[in-house]
């Protein structure tokens, strides 16, 4: 099939970007979206032009490196799917596709479609962990965890840190990312000792990084490739309020 691509081109963080139009033909429906971009990039290199830079790595939807806002939706039109797992059979011959980087103040553009998501790492650094050193824990079965809670914790832990939540949020808020980590640990007995400290520290860092506030659009949940539920945001709100009112 033939497609018209409008791809964001931006030389560096300081430059002003713009869309560049490219026609691609010979797109096979079995290609993944990124393979389609690979083919375009190869042909650009052959023409002596610079290919479009975009983040990607595992190409099986788990590393969270791939991004792209495709026709106005982060990770494109298919629900519960990362860009690398999106296949061209979801598009029709003759379609126009707009490809933009993830946009949020906390995700500055590095080049073309590549953005800096290190803000997420810094949020984890202030509390997204359980303070247990190597070789300190007790036997793994010493603390039973109800199956329901373990499953819920796993639902939250499924987050791949891709940043689509903040990219999709009209407020540029990353509540879903933060809530997923906070809730994972809040649901497990191992996470209890640092529960209050963690939620306060992570939320404060989130705001310091320039992410917006939640106004419950639920756009984050809609685009989340791992379908992390906004229920975790409510859990985090409750934890945060409780912690703010009662922390030492």
């Amino acid at each position: 099939m033939k497609l018209t691509l409008h791809i964001w081109r931006q030389k560096s963080a300081r430059d002003k970007g713009k869309f560049e139009e490219h026609l691609v033909d010979d797109v096979s429906p079995d290609m993944s979206f990124l393979e389609m971009l690979d083919v375009l990039n190869e042909s650009l290199i052959h023409q002596g032009k610079e290919p479009f830079a975009y983040d990607h790595d595992c190409r099986e939807g788990i590393c969270g490196a791939c991004s792209l806002t495709i026709n106005g939706t982060p990770h494109g039109p298919e629900a519960a799917t990362t860009t690398c797992q999106l296949h061209m059979r979801k598009f029709k011959n003759g379609d126009s596709i707009f490809i933009e980087p993830f946009r949020a103040r906390a995700f500055p553009i590095i080049k073309d479609l590549v953005v800096d998501r290190s803000a997420f790492d810094r949020i984890i650094q202030v509390g997204g962990f359980i303070s247990v050193g190597t070789n300190q824990p007790q036997d793994a079965n010493a603390l039973p965890v109800s199956k329901l809670k373990a499953e819920l914790a796993m639902d939250a832990a499924a987050c791949i840190g891709c940043g689509a939540c903040a990219a999709a949020c009209p407020n540029g808020a990353s509540m879903l990312f933060v809530a997923a980590k906070v809730s994972q640990f809040a649901l497990l007995p191992q996470g209890q000792p640092e529960r209050k400290k963690r939620v306060v520290a992570m939320v404060e860092q989130m705001e310091k990084e320039g992410f917006g506030g939640c106004t419950n659009f639920y756009e984050c949940e809609a685009v989340c490739p791992k379908q992390v539920s906004v229920r975790f945001i409510a859990m985090m709100n409750r934890d945060f309020l409780g912690a703010t009112l009662t922390k030492e």
Partner: peptide, 18 residues
């Protein structure tokens, strides 16, 4: 706060749940 957090808007936008 939220306006500041999204300084550049998407040129094309398709909402799913909002």
């Amino acid at each position: 706060l939220n306006m500041a957090s999204k300084p550049v808007k998407y040129q094309v936008r398709r909402y799913v749940k909002a």
